[in-house]
């Protein structure tokens, strides 16, 4: 599809804000148009990167789980980590990647809860790696709030 989705979203937001909003009456309507425009500008940031973020996160989580499966002392969790590390993304559709991402993050929560209270030698290093992943994840998903006027 051309023009690109992010270009169109950004363009539409600009039209709404600069051309359509001034013609509208009513504070609530104007406010809503502003909110919709802001949301579209953020969707424009997300649309091109959404699949890449999820694909990369899923790969990082599987690698993390493969390593964790070898060191954690909870056998049941280790088995599930090992199984999760062997999964693959069969589709690059965002909803499919989200489904994998959700399943992996659910397991990540369990792993982090275990690591942060464990005194075992592996715990500090694993906890640190989990935080590195999470810091990278929130940074990759960062939105720039559009500066206007």
């Amino acid at each position: 599809m051309k023009p690109d989705a992010d270009v169109m979203l950004g363009g539409f937001a600009g039209t709404l804000l600069m051309d359509i909003a001034p013609q509208l009456g009513g504070e609530y309507t104007l406010g809503s148009v502003g909110i919709i425009s802001m949301s579209m500008l953020m969707m424009a940031q997300e649309v091109d990167r959404a699949a890449e973020i999820r694909y990369q996160e899923n790969a990082q989580l599987r690698a993390l789980f493969a390593e964790a499966a070898r060191i954690v002392d909870d056998k049941d969790l280790a088995k599930r980590l090992d199984a999760a590390s062997a999964t693959k993304d069969e589709s690059l559709r965002v909803r499919a990647l989200d489904a994998s991402n959700d399943a992996l993050k659910k397991l990540l929560i369990e792993l982090q809860a275990l690591a942060e209270v464990s005194k075992a030698p592996w715990a500090a290093g694993l906890e640190s790696k989990i935080w590195d992943f999470l810091l990278g994840s929130v940074e990759a998903r960062r939105f720039v709030f559009p500066a206007l006027g």
């Binding site: 809503s32 909110i35 949301s39 953020m42 929130v138 940074e139 939105f143 709030f145």
Partner: peptide, 16 residues
């Protein structure tokens, strides 16, 4: 639409 915007940008800030 305020609910949609609320779940995008503020979520991002608070997660970071």
């Amino acid at each position: 639409p305020i609910l949609a915007l609320s779940s995008i940008y503020p979520t991002d800030v608070h997660n970071r």
